[in-house]
């Protein structure tokens, strides 16, 4: 068997002296460097007390601008591991939110969900610590409210009223037409009796 241990070869006196000299000299050179750092102020910081600045582009826990979101599923489709799930009931133009969750057991913070968003409403935040005692809690709901927002409810109500009024008007119109057809040449009577 071929051995590659150099120390088994004989050492000449010249090499012997060279080894002693090199050993001493390079050790002292190394100790000079480490000794210089020994007297310098450390560069680390005391973490929980002081923290490094987190850059704007940091890819942390998502946050959602729920008002803008239109439940188009573009982010969920872009996700390589299908960790985004969303569900909303559509009332005309308004959305009644049921859920919008990111499963952080799976999420690998690749930011691919952010780019395809047509409304630019899902972002990655600067929060990185997300600790729970139970795995199921890692499925994080991004919604700030469930159901509909107050504005949306007002808008929906307005829209419904408008719709109802429209429907009522239509109905009344139809009824009037019918009445007209039934009574022949009698003039139309509007239904405000109060």
């Amino acid at each position: 068997m071929k051995t590659t241990i150099s120390a088994r070869e004989l050492t000449t006196p010249r090499e012997w002296v060279q080894n002693v000299w090199d050993g001493l000299f390079t050790t002292l050179a190394g100790m000079r460097i480490t000794g210089r750092y020994l007297l310098r102020k450390p560069i680390t910081i005391q973490y929980p007390d002081e923290r490094m600045p987190i850059p704007d582009r940091y890819r942390g826990i998502h946050y959602l601008e729920q008002e803008k979101c239109i439940n188009c599923l573009a982010c969920a489709r872009a996700c390589p591991i299908d960790c985004i799930e969303m569900d909303a009931i559509r009332h005309g133009k308004e959305l009644e939110w049921v859920s919008f969750s990111v499963d952080y057991q799976k999420c690998m913070f690749c930011e691919l969900c952010v780019y395809p968003c047509p409304k630019d409403c899902i972002h990655m935040g600067t929060e990185f610590a997300f600790v729970t005692e139970d795995r199921s809690e890692l499925k994080h709901d991004l919604l700030s409210f469930k159901g509909m927002s107050r504005d949306a409810r007002v808008r929906k109500k307005e829209a419904e009223e408008k719709k109802a009024a429209k429907a009522a008007a239509k109905e009344a119109k139809a009824a009037a037409k019918e009445a007209q057809a039934a009574s022949g040449d009698q003039p139309k009577e509007e239904g405000d009796d109060g």
Partner: peptide, 8 residues
């Protein structure tokens, strides 16, 4: 060791 390695 900490101070040699630039830490506290």
């Amino acid at each position: 060791s900490g101070h040699i390695q630039c830490r506290y």
